[in-house]
């Protein structure tokens, strides 16, 4: 009894409710003629697609910069990389690597500037991050029209310039990472091994990084800034490093997402992409000041599970698609819960 109580305390009510909800959906799936293997496979694929972007939340939370609503900034760097890679036109793994090689320096520069900005506005990072994300997406809307990309796979046919809103990566590097060692069981069950390995690699790297000197210093900055100051850690520098890391991971994350999804979404596409990632890590048990790799894994599986299961199960149950509404309520409700629960910002 006591153990259950402890577990509830440890996991928190919202997570348990969401977990039970997801479990119910899985249990009900066979009864409403939704294929369980296909659902699980979908959930896993989406877990792999979104995992890196959720992981991108960790450094900034740990260093006390709060939830990174400015993720679109990293996503933009990733998009630039992806689009340039398609313009060059090299298919397969090299194409993805080129995309990342272009995206990472851009993300580093953007992240550095973004970090400098966030250091000037300590205490209200989240609101500003949100709007930095929004304005950068809006700014890039102009840029996508103007930038001199010429590949006929990407520009509007009649005008010959200006990138299209969605660009297919089919024929370039569709599922390039996912298909490394991927396998199928039956018709519906597909495991993108490569994508999981890649995510595991990044998670492990993050885990190791958190235990290096820089990593622990970063954690100290987030959890106890006064102590960090006293022990001679350069707070501003640590915060900038965390923001750069977060932005770079965002850039890598969107490339992983696209190679699995099959499309590059430009213009207003990345606008709301920060929110699912933020709610996923919160569902996984992170708070505004504390996050671990475990939170990332658990949260992404729970959140993406709900996103995959609600449309199919609820749709077959009541013949109405309520998934969009459920998604909005669950994800924003989770963020709201975290924001109201957190202790007042330590200054």
């Amino acid at each position: 009894m006591n153990r259950i109580k402890n577990f509830i305390e440890y996991a928190g009510w919202p997570r348990i409710i969401i977990g039970i909800f997801l479990l119910t959906l899985f249990v009900m799936a066979p009864f409403v003629r939704v294929r369980l293997d296909a659902s699980i496979s979908d959930t896993l694929v989406r877990f792999g697609m979104n995992g890196v972007m959720v992981l991108a939340m960790v450094p900034m939370i740990v260093s006390g910069c709060g939830l990174n609503f400015g993720l679109p900034l990293g996503i933009i760097a990733g998009l630039l990389g992806a689009v340039t890679s398609i313009e060059i036109g090299i298919p397969g793994i090299p194409g993805v690597l080129i995309a990342m090689a272009i995206a990472i320096p851009i993300a580093t520069i953007l992240g550095w500037a973004y970090g400098l900005l966030l250091n000037k506005v300590k205490g209200s990072e989240m609101m500003i991050a949100t709007y930095v994300g929004f304005s950068s997406v809006a700014f890039m809307c102009i840029m996508w029209l103007v930038l001199p990309y010429r590949s006929s796979n990407m520009v509007w046919g009649y005008a010959g310039k200006g990138l299209r809103t969605t660009i297919a990566v089919e024929g370039f590097w569709h599922q390039a990472i996912s298909d490394i060692g991927s396998f199928r069981i039956g018709q519906f069950f597909y495991i993108p091994t490569g994508m999981f390995l890649f995510l595991a690699l990044l998670c492990a790297a993050m885990w190791v990084f958190m235990r290096t000197r820089t990593g622990t210093a970063m954690t100290t900055v987030g959890s106890n800034p006064e102590y960090a100051r006293a022990s001679g850690v350069n707070i501003d520098r640590m915060r900038i490093i965390s923001v750069i890391l977060s932005t770079v991971l965002g850039a890598i994350g969107i490339i992983v997402y696209q190679q699995s999804f099959g499309f590059v979404q430009l213009y207003m596409g990345p606008f709301y992409m920060a929110f699912p990632a933020v709610s996923a890590i919160l569902i996984g048990g992170a708070s505004v000041h504390k996050a671990t790799i475990l939170n990332v894994v658990v949260g992404t599986i729970l959140f993406q599970g709900i996103l995959t299961m609600t449309p199919s199960v609820i749709n077959s149950m009541i013949q109405t698609d309520m998934s969009e509404v459920i998604r909005i309520i669950v994800s924003n409700g989770m963020i709201l819960y975290a924001l109201t629960r957190a202790v007042k910002v330590k200054l």
Binding site: F275, M322, I328, L339, V345
Partner: peptide, 26 residues
Amino acid sequence: AKGREMVTSFILGFFMNGVYQLIVLY
């Protein structure tokens, strides 16, 4: 959520948008 009213009210807007859709759409 004192001290972070803006971001909270911002997210609250999104959240209630979901509730509004639930009510009006269903």
